[in-house]
Write a protein that binds this DNA or RNA. Structure first.
Lengths: 219, 219
DNA sequence: CGGGCGGTTGAGGTCAATCAATCAGAGTGG
DNA sequence: CCACTCTGATTGATTGACCTCAACCGCCCG
C-alpha cells in the first residue's frame, strides 16, 4: 500500500479558465478566491458541509478512502467546474488540489441569500450525477484500454478540447479514478502509444493523435 | 451475449411501502398511480424527460446499454424511492420494472406548479448522487464478495431492514449492477452461504444470517 | 554524484470471465 | 398427472485480464 501526500508547493499547470462559462457566472461575486498548493486538502471526509467551490485555475480530485487504504477517486474537476454540493451536513469524500489551484469559495450563507440559487443548485447536482453515472458504466463494464481512452477524451473535452493535453494528475490518481493499478495505467498508455492513438510526452503530457479512434473505443 | 426481456406478466413481490416516508409525501397528490408489469419499460434511453416517479410498490432498475450489448444497471429503486430526475431533456438511461410495480407518476408541469418543489428536487438529486458515488467505490475498489455483501446489506437497509430479503431482481440484474458476471454472482452467493453468512432459499430469497459480519466485509 | 520519487517494464500469480454442462422450477400440452 | 420444454441458476474446467512483486529508468534536487 502507498501513502498519499497532502501538501507540498509546486508550479501550476493550468492557469486560466478556458471553458465557456458554465452558467452561474456570478459565483465569482458571491464567493471569494482562495489559493491551494499542490496536494493541499480543500476539505476532508467528515468535515462539515458549508457551501461550494468553483475551480478558477488548477484542478481538484474528490477522494474516498477505505479503511484498508484502498482509494477511489470519484471525479476530477477542472477550471469552470463547480463542486462541493453534497447531501447532509458531513462531507462524504475529501477534496484535494492536484496542482496549485485557485478556487472561488462560496459559503452556504451567501448561497442562501441569493434568490437565483435554487434551480442552479439542482442543475449542478444533476450534472455531477450525470458524470457519476457515466463513470459507473466505465468502472463496471469497460476494459482497461477503454477506461483510459474514455478518461483522456473526457478530460480533453472538458479542458478546451485541444488535442494536446496537460495531465494535472499522477498515474496513481488516474488508476484510483479508473479502478486500475498504476502499472496497468502505465502499460495502457504505452499500448495506446504503440497503436499510434496517443503520444506520451513526459508523464504529464499526452497528445491525442487519433481522437476519433480513441472516442470509438468508448461506445 | 444474452437478451433482455421487456414484458411478461408475473406475480408481485413487494406489495407495500414499508419505509418511513422519504419526505415529499404529497407526491401522491401531485401525481397519478400507474401500474407496470414485470420487465415492462417505464421509459427508454433517449426518451424526452418529463417529470419523475415514486415507487409505490414493486421495484425498478435503471439501465444503460452499450452498443455491443454490455449492460450496466445504474441503480435499483424500491418502494418509497423517487427516481427519474435527470439533467437535460433526454433520458440517459432506461427505467424498467423488475416485477409488477405501481408508480406515482408526476408530470413536469405538476412539479413546476408546486412551490415546494425546488429544494426537494435538489435533495432528491443529491441523494441519487450520494448513492451513485458510493457505488463508484464498490465498482472500482471492491472484490466480488464485498460487492455482493454490500448489495445485500444495502437492499436490506432500504426495504424495511429485516434479515430475510426478497430479491426482486435476477442474477443477471445483480451482475450488471455490480460489474460481474451471472456466474460470479451465483458462486459468490454459494460461497457466502458456505461461510454461514447468508442462507439462500430459492433464487429470489435470501436470509442474512450474520449481518454484522456481512456489513464488516464492506468497510 | 547519490538519493528519492514517479513512472515504466517484466515475470509470475490470481481473481473473475469464459466456455460448457447440469440442474431446478414453472409452464404447457398430451 | 406426467413427460417435455424453456428459462434462469448453479457448478465445473479453463482461460485471460489485470494485479502483484520486483527491477529498472529518468528526472529533479541536494
Amino acid at each position: 500500500m502507498q501513502m498519499y501526500a497532502t501538501s507540498r508547493a509546486q508550479p501550476d499547470l493550468q492557469p486560466i479558465d478556458r471553458r465557456p462559462a458554465q452558467d452561474w457566472g456570478e459565483l465569482n461575486v458571491l464567493g471569494v478566491a482562495r489559493a491551494f498548493g499542490r496536494d493541499q486538502e480543500i476539505y476532508a471526509e467528515g468535515d462539515k458541509v458549508d457551501g461550494l467551490f468553483k475551480v478558477a485555475s488548477g484542478a481538484v480530485r474528490i477522494v474516498r478512502l477505505l479503511r484498508d487504504g484502498r482509494r477511489q477517486v470519484l471525479d476530477f474537476y477542472v477550471p469552470g467546474d463547480i463542486f462541493g454540493v453534497e447531501l447532509g451536513d458531513v462531507r462524504g469524500a475529501a477534496a484535494e488540489a492536484l496542482v496549485d489551484t485557485t478556487l472561488i469559495v462560496v459559503r452556504g450563507s451567501a448561497l442562501a441569500a441569493d434568490p437565483a440559487t435554487g434551480g442552479r443548485l439542482t442543475r449542478c447536482a444533476l450534472r455531477c450525477l450525470q458524470r457519476s453515472q457515466a463513470h459507473l458504466v466505465t468502472l463496471g463494464r469497460r476494459t482497461a484500454a477503454e477506461k483510459v481512452a474514455r478518461f483522456l477524451i473526457d478530460l480533453a473535452d472538458r479542458t478546451g478540447g485541444a488535442d494536446d493535453l496537460a495531465l494535472p494528475m499522477s498515474r496513481q490518481d488516474i488508476a484510483d479514478f479508473l479502478g486500475l493499478t498504476i502499472e496497468t495505467v502505465s502499460r495502457t498508455f504505452s499500448q495506446l502509444q504503440a497503436q499510434g492513438l496517443i503520444a506520451v510526452a513526459g508523464c504529464r503530457a499526452v497528445v491525442l493523435r487519433r481522437r476519433a479512434a480513441l472516442a470509438a473505443m468508448c461506445e
